[in-house]
Computed example of a mutant assay.
Amino acid sequence: MDVRRLELLLALSRLGSMRAVAETLGVTTSTVSQQIAALAHEVGVPLLEPDGRRVRLTPAGRRLAGHAVDIVAAVEAARVDLDPSADPTGTVRVAAFHTAIQDTLLPVVHRLATAHPAVRLEIQEQEPPEALALLERGQVDLAVSYDYDLAPANLDPGLQVARLWQATWGLGVPSRSRRTSGTAAEVLAGFAESDWIVNSRHTGDEQVVRTIASLAGFEPRVTHRADSLPLVREMILAGLGVALLPTGNPKTPGISVRRLRDPEPMLRTYAVTRRGRGGWAPLSLVLGLLEEQRRAPDAVSWT
């Protein structure tokens, strides 16, 4: 089987339409159609079937796409293994959310500049949905992502995940707010009539809020959305609502972060790569530095 055709089939399974595959990979729609038709002839079974004006994978097509994950990863691993360059050299493209860039990647940049100047990072700020989409399309080599234990991410099996660190989150409210205590549901119940602020580019914290609120028997009134923690804090101070905030950050005058328990929301961060690419020397070096940073005695939980 032709690996390039398998890559197109895999892209179709992820992106859902031939036009999306063509736009993402920089080819024509007719090329995608012809190559998948050739693959179907090669394996001897139909891989596509009509779905209105579009097409979708047949059961056999979905099974082959599942195999393609491992095949494509193995081919990429072989290419990495045959790379004649022994010393790490090159540019690692990274997509990460703001705080990860600030607290995790910039220290790696400084270490690379000192000990491995031939390796550099090319960084762009993206929330996890955008970062993972860029990674799956091959537009970045590494995504630093996060999810919550109460709202776990459903990652593509073609991705390799390495746990970084985690941080507990609580409820950020104006300091003048009435004190509440008890379980997470009981604490949130004290703010059932409040407006809520959630992330504008990631749904994880909103899912956590709605999950705990459901335990307390109310539907949160989500009114405001922002993707910057400093902005969220400013909105809380302005009296616009309450929001989830990390418990380990320095205190903000005028804001109290109430601890939540049973359940206690936990944000989890990850380094995510495409399967088979982790052995590429520059990327392997960066992943190693991230792991060293995670294991350091003075490592700080953050987000």
Rank of each mutant, 00 (worst) to 15 (best):
P152D: 03
E234T: 04
E193H: 12
Y146P: 11
L150T: 05
S177M: 10
P152K: 08
Q160I: 00
A167M: 10
S145I: 00
D227L: 03
D156T: 02
V173Y: 04
R179V: 15
A189C: 05
A189L: 11
V187S: 13
D195I: 01
A243D: 08
W196M: 03
T168L: 14
M235R: 07
E186F: 03
P220I: 01
L244T: 06
G239S: 00
L245C: 09
V222P: 06
N249S: 11
A143N: 08
P246H: 05
R210H: 05
G204W: 14
A216K: 02
A151I: 06
Q160C: 06
D195Y: 04
I197R: 08
E193F: 02
P152A: 05
S200L: 00
A143T: 10
R233V: 03
T180W: 11
G190K: 09
L237K: 13
T247P: 01
N199W: 08
Q166G: 11
L150M: 11
V208D: 07
D205W: 04
L188D: 03
S214F: 02
L231S: 07
R179A: 15
D156Q: 08
Q139H: 13
R201G: 07
G248S: 12
A153D: 04
D227G: 07
S145E: 00
P152W: 08
L159V: 01
S214H: 08
V242L: 02
L142C: 00
R210T: 03
E193R: 10
N199R: 13
V161H: 00
R221T: 15
A184Q: 00
L240E: 14
T223Y: 01
D156K: 08
D147Y: 04
G190Y: 12
A167K: 06
F191P: 14
D147G: 06
T247G: 06
V232P: 00
I212H: 03
R201T: 14
A167D: 10
Y148G: 05
G138D: 07
I212C: 03
A226Y: 14
N154Q: 09
L215H: 11
A243R: 06
T183N: 04
A185V: 08
A167R: 07
W165Q: 09
L171K: 09
V161I: 10
T180A: 11
L150E: 06
A238P: 01
A238Q: 11
V144D: 00
G158R: 02
A192R: 12
G190N: 09
L244P: 01
R178T: 13
R210M: 01
G158V: 01
W165S: 15
H224A: 03
A216E: 07
L215R: 15
G217N: 07
L142T: 01
W165V: 14
A167C: 07
